[in-house]
Amino acid sequence: MSLILLWFAVLLVASLLGGLVRILIGPTATDRMLAAQLLGTSGVGVLLLLAEALERPPLRDVALVFSLLAAVGAIGFVRLAADPVEGPP
């Protein structure tokens, strides 16, 4: 059973790396931030699978902290780096 879960974890990490391509080529900052969000959620998924497969309950706390702080980065982006400058766009 845990073997199968690990295979699913491998699949998720592969999809995570797929999302990484969008960060590399993403023309606008918005795309990159969206891709980062997707990777964050995939990361939570992988951690949950690992927690179950490797019998490590503490990893669920790590997933909990990740899910809690997923928004902080994005809000930081919106409020700090990407806030529109009212000058000519």
């Binding site: 918005t30 969000q37 669920r60 899910s67 997923a70 994005a74 809000i75 529109p84 766009p89």
Partner: peptide
């Protein structure tokens, strides 16, 4: 705990998508 994690992810992804989209709109994407 799993449900709590899922709920938090739902909450934060909804908010972030809204904010990112809005800021993109504001920047005239």
């Amino acid at each position: 705990r799993l449900l709590l994690i899922w709920l938090l992810v739902l909450l934060s992804s909804a908010t972030t998508c809204h904010l990112i989209a809005q800021s993109a709109l504001r920047r005239g994407a």
